[in-house]
Deep mutational scan, measured.
Amino acid sequence: RQGFVPAAYVKKLDSGTGKELVLALYDYQEKSPREVTMKKGDILTLLNSTNKDWWKVEVN
């Protein structure tokens, strides 16, 4: 499932696989259909980080 999360809630990881991955630093509950819920410690695939406030991710 793809959607947006606050950029301040995730940290980029060095995956070494060519995929950009991020680590969820905090729990986040989606507040609109365009967002996704994540739990602290989740590893997500980063799809787009051009917006400084909201990053598009895919929940694996």
Score class of each variant (00 low, 15 high):
T17V: 13
F4W: 15
T50I: 08
Y28C: 02
Q2C: 11
V5N: 01
P6Y: 03
S49K: 09
T17Y: 14
G3N: 01
L23H: 04
K39Y: 11
G18A: 13
T50N: 14
K52W: 06
V5G: 01
R1P: 06
A7L: 02
N51W: 07
T50M: 11
D42F: 04
N48C: 10
L46H: 01
M38K: 00
Y9G: 07
Y9V: 07
S15T: 15
L46D: 00
D42N: 06
V57A: 01
L23P: 00
W55D: 01
L21G: 03
L46C: 05
L21V: 09
V5H: 00
W55G: 00
E30H: 09
T50Y: 09
F4K: 03
V10E: 02
K12H: 08
V59R: 11
V57D: 01
D42Y: 05
K52C: 10
S32A: 08
I43D: 00
K52E: 10
P33G: 08
Y9M: 14
E30G: 14
D14R: 10
R34F: 13
V57N: 00
L44W: 03
N51K: 06
M38Q: 01
E20P: 15
L21N: 05
A24T: 04
K11N: 06
E58L: 08
W55R: 00
S15M: 14
K11R: 12
N48A: 08
R34P: 05
W54C: 06
Y26K: 14
D53L: 14
I43C: 06
D27E: 05
Y9K: 09
P33H: 11
E20A: 12
N60A: 13
D27V: 02
W55T: 03
D42V: 04
G41I: 01
G41S: 03
N60Y: 12
A8K: 15
N48M: 07
T37R: 07
T37D: 04
A7E: 03
K11V: 15
A8G: 11
W55S: 02
G16W: 10
M38C: 05
G3M: 06
K39G: 05
T17N: 14
K12Y: 09
Y9S: 12
R34Y: 14
V22R: 00
D42S: 06
T37I: 03
D53F: 15
V5Q: 01
L25E: 04
L46S: 01
G16D: 14
L21E: 08
K52N: 12
W54P: 00
T50S: 14
L13T: 06
R1F: 06
G16M: 13
L21W: 09
G16N: 14
L25K: 06
N48D: 15
N51A: 08
S15Q: 12
Q2D: 05
W55K: 01
L44V: 05
G18I: 10
K19L: 13
V5W: 01
N60S: 13
